[in-house]
Design a protein around this nucleic acid. Structure first.
Length: 608
DNA sequence: AGAGGTGGTG
DNA sequence: CATGCACCACCTCT
């Protein structure tokens, strides 16, 4: 690899005035590909300060100092970064996009992201984090020092020579990585997948910048109510088990009884169940507790229900409300999974409990005054994908005729007549059909199905056979997916999104177990991954419509098959129609044999 | 610090 | 032969 720069002495221009900026732009405007990176005093674009915006060609990096120059006012710079014809090489461009947009108002377009590219080129195998350091070693064969990065943390002084060199390298090194990655993208047929990811980045950036509003007072009240119930149950529990412990009658300084054990410790719980109560339990999980015929187990299960909610969705979530915006700005990772789905963290808003009477957490997510939430989700999208990809005529017919899928399946399987009251007439049969339908998409076998339905494995196997007889193409389709994956070492969605597998040694004692696991993953990947593809297209389409139609609002959440946006009240109803239409249009890119359905509604709280 | 257990979401 | 996909948060224990 011939580098166009010297890693030990990179060329850069440090720009603090208009003349310097114009000279740099004279060069940059002639390039078709530029590298972009930013340095800030921290990670939060709302709270921290931009210290440098580096924009470079393959041999020189231009370091714009936003403390010396109002970058948002530099019309030529804005036009450069917003020019859709010029490719901006980035590494984790979402970060740079957000900082630049929040602090200068400039909205970068046409991003190429080396981190995302590496993620799609290695999905399922290898590292989950693709740092610039590692990619530099892989593609440019030198060691990128990273110790200077920390020097920007909370930094207020003038930019040092060392900081300049370091910052310059961060744009220069993007070029050899880009050169090394793009042939791989072509070879793997993943250019369009990459383009989809890059387009999604801007949507995710906007979504994270906007964040989502949460009613903290209401949230706290829910927690308070839950804690009261939990504490009462905990007290009962300690009471019940006191006699088994030597410290059972001890009291603290104020005369309150001391807890016999820590209810959150599985070690201590297992000791209680197995040694004191002689129950012989393998674990203390909910499934086991249900089967244990002892009041202590039931009380523990009840306690767990509350303790889970309080600990996982408690004050730590509220503590993440941004002090500047007053909203939550979670981190959506567009390649957070091996299948192409998003993951979400800090906080993970994709795992907020569904609303219940006791814990209506989602109702605490509300729009700003004057706005509405518009929620839309795909209707049984993964089943529709299965129908489409397998090409099963019966399953396709069921969706074409808009039947209740699981009822229809049960009717076919058990030779009953389908009608719209089927769900009421044969709830158990419908449930069995539903479990098989979902289970198959996860590669489940008879034993798993038996456990789920609490029936004998033998009967479960009969049920599965009935399912496959009802939908003759499905079994062959799924078996082909697992066979192909084991033969090729990867599976693929119709869009070309791949997932690779690492195979065990033949001598591995868990060889068969690991192969089975790969087979299940390979059955699921094209289905889940196609869902992910559709969602990403939908997000891109929706952001385009927001801009084109001049809608006052933004997408605020995405939860696998659901999109939530926050829209000015008078525009919300019209937007709801657009939102479901665009989701359908995106889904229809992949699902062509059956209809794609998305229903949207307008509300004042997040409800599902 | 990292692993294992548990349980929330789609 | 082994027996359900994809995640993240919190807790305890080492």
């Amino acid at each position: 690899m011939d580098l166009k720069f010297d890693p030990n002495n990179p060329r850069f221009e440090y720009i603090t005035d208009i003349e310097g900026a114009n000279k740099a732009l004279d060069v940059l405007e002639k390039a078709s590909i530029i590298g972009v990176d930013v340095e800030g005093t921290g990670l939060d674009p709302h709270l921290e300060k931009l210290l440098l915006v580096q924009i470079g060609t393959e041999d020189t990096s231009y370091l714009f100092d936003p403390r010396a120059l109002d970058l948002g006012k530099l019309e030529r710079l804005k036009n450069l970064l917003e020019n859709p014809k010029i490719i901006k090489l980035t590494h984790n461009g979402k970060f740079d996009y957000k900082f630049i947009k929040v602090q200068t108002g400039i909205s970068m377009t046409n991003i190429y992201d080396t981190m995302l590219t590496e993620a799609i080129l290695t999905a399922g195998v290898g590292r989950r984090l693709h740092s610039l350091q590692v990619l530099t070693q892989d593609y440019a064969q030198f060691v990128l020092k990273k110790d200077t990065r920390e020097s920007f943390q909370s930094y207020t002084g003038p930019i040092t020579d060392e900081q300049k060199s370091y910052s310059a390298l961060d744009t220069l090194v993007l070029f050899p990585i880009f050169e090394g990655q793009t042939p791989k993208l072509k070879k793997e047929g993943m250019v369009n997948v990459a383009k989809l990811e890059f387009a999604s980045t801007l949507v995710v950036g906007d979504m994270e910048i906007r964040g989502v509003h949460i009613d903290s007072d209401k949230w706290k009240q829910i927690l308070k109510d839950l804690a009261k119930k939990r504490d009462e149950i905990a007290k009962n529990f300690q009471e019940m088990i006191r006699t088994y412990y030597r410290n059972g009658n001890q009291t603290d300084l104020f005369g309150a009884p001391v807890d016999a054990i820590n209810m959150n410790s599985t070690t201590q719980l297992l000791d209680l169940f197995n040694n004191k109560l002689a129950l012989d339990m393998p674990s203390t999980g909910a499934e086991i507790l249900k089967t244990v015929n002892h009041p202590v187990a039931q009380v523990l299960a009840e306690y767990r229900g509350y303790e889970k909610l309080i600990s996982a969705f408690g004050e730590t979530l509220l503590a993440q409300v941004n002090r500047k915006t007053g909203r939550l700005h979670p981190d959506f990772m567009q390649m957070g999974t091996a299948t192409g789905r998003f993951s979400c963290k800090d906080p993970n808003l994709q795992q907020i409990p569904r609303n219940s009477e006791e814990a209506p957490f989602r109702t605490c997510f509300t729009p700003e005054p004057g706005y509405k939430l518009v929620t839309a989700d795909y209707s049984s999208i993964e089943m529709r994908i299965l129908a489409d990809l397998s090409g099963d005529e019966k399953m396709i017919d069921a969706f074409l005729n808009d039947l209740d899928m699981h009822s229809y399946t049960a009717a076919l399987m058990f030779n009953k007549e389908y009608n719209k009251d089927f769900k009421k007439q044969y709830p158990d049969l419908r449930q069995a059909a539903k479990s098989i339908g979902f289970g198959l998409m996860y590669g489940m076998g008879p034993v798993g199905l038996a456990a789920q339905l609490k029936i004998e494995p033998k009967l479960a196997e009969e049920y599965m056979n009935l399912f496959f007889k009802s939908y003759p193409s499905v079994k062959g389709f799924l078996d082909r997916l697992s066979k192909d994956a084991v033969r090729n070492g990867w599976s693929s969605t119709p869009s070309g999104r791949k997932r690779w597998y690492t195979f065990p040694e033949k001598t591995d004692p868990e060889y068969r177990k690991k192969i089975s696991s790969i087979e299940r993953q390979a059955k699921n990947h094209p289905i889940q991954g196609t869902n992910a593809d559709a969602m990403k297209y939908a997000l891109v389409f929706l952001n385009e419509r927001l801009r084109k139609e001049n809608v006052d609002g933004s997408i605020v959440l995405t939860v696998h098959d659901e999109i939530v946006s926050e829209i000015r009240a008078d525009q919300a109803e019209d937007w709801a129609k657009i939102q479901s239409e665009e989701m359908v249009r995106a889904g229809a890119l992949f699902v062509k044999k059956v209809p794609v359905i998305s229903e949207a509604f307008v509300s004042d709280v997040w409800e599902h």
